[in-house]
Write a protein that binds this DNA or RNA. Sequence first.
RNA 1: GGGAGAGUGUCCCGAGCGGCAAAGGGGGCGGACUGUAAAUCCGCUGGCUAAGCCUUCGUAGGUUCGAGUCCUACCUCUCCCA
Length: 416
Amino acid sequence: MSAPFKSDFLRTLDERGFIHQGSDLAGLDALAAKGEAIGYVGYDCTAPSLHIGNFLTMMMLYWLQQSGNKPITLMGGGTTMVGDPSGKDETRALRTVAEIEANKASIKGVFGKILRFGEGRTDAIMIDNADWLTELKWIGMLREVGRHFSVNRMLTMDSVRLRLEREQEMSFIEFNYMVAQSYDFVELARRTGCNLQMGGSDQWGNIVNGVDLGRRMGTHQLFALTTPLLTTASGAKMGKTAQGAVWLNAESFSPYDFWQYWRNTEDADVGKFLKLFTILPMHEIRRLEALQGAEINEAKKALANAATELLHGSAAAEAAAETARKTFEEGALAASLPTVEVARTEFEGMGLLTAFVRAGLVASTGEARRQVKAGGLRLNDAQVSDERATLSQRDLVEGVVKLSLGKKKHVLIRPA
RNA sequence: GGGAGAGUGUCCCGAGCGGCAAAGGGGGCGGACUGUAAAUCCGCUGGCUAAGCCUUCGUAGGUUCGAGUCCUACCUCUCCCA
């Protein structure tokens, strides 16, 4: 499946497993080899943080920049107001404009961790499609853009067809999403010379529609490139944990949790993830993924370190690694575990079940009771058997108590 | 506009003769086994000041000792006719 690409950009993406589909890869290859690829990825503002799936496309932008081409991050301030039906069974509630703006502001910061922004030729730039989408005039839009869209063809696109086949409602506003996204591509081409759009495989239809629209509206040649849908080796969608998605913002998902997420990768996925989510050189990755049996834990730590460093910086990565080492390998108390402070007066005599709730390890005292029955709760590494137990000064070790759910989740309670 | 049907445990799908905190599955969590892996097996999967109490079946009323289940109105969706 490996094509002999000339450009560093496509060669790197190819050997690291980023490429799912592309339009005219040879043409794109030639462009990228000359450093003339200007590629963008659009990010919807549906949540206050991007998640691990977005990390994948951010890495494509990273490699684009590293190979001497120009990346653009497009904030979907406008498209989020429409709502992307791709891959969804049903319409989601429309988000308020205020909510979208707040999300946008919260998301923006993460790109600076991976990309270099500035005025230079290969510096990244950030644009918001609300700038033009919200200004469009209905009739003018229909005459200039709408006439290029065949409804017959739109009905055959996966995002629409799957809804219809499952007899799920699809509103007109969602039906317009692909038009908006297609138009974005054209608008970006005109404004910035952009010639490449990348995204997840579920965006293929939206992207190639943009390529088509560009041709019909007379832009330069546009290209499409998508990544495979990420699943774990055991078939689960990637990026889901008990608490929810794996977020990229540290406030939503701590660097320690992020590190742990990678540390717990399934054996069969280690090589794949090293290639996609780290910038370790390929020869190092080949060595790591060749490890067998328990030795593969070394590769998982390398993955966790490298991915966390990329997103949160080396200090955070080292801290997370050290916390994990103390906690799991020495069984010692690591002061840097996630910590919840509780008023001193409240601490003395606090019900143990309540403490687990406060620590966020369980959702309710009811769940805590169940976990006690299942033997899943521990206080300072001793299994909890009495659900009526309370905390006192005597439980403090180095000024904290350690609460654990299962073998992996630990939180410290510190009276303050 | 006329007719027929559907909305169930706020993760999803889905059973539900008037006695129901409500079958079953998926997912998730915990336990055992391991290597902080996978697979497998077992348990759990409304809330609480917990042998008791409280809140849940689209919404609001009603019938009844008692309503997810019956009645009325309303909302939303699907299908057929116009």
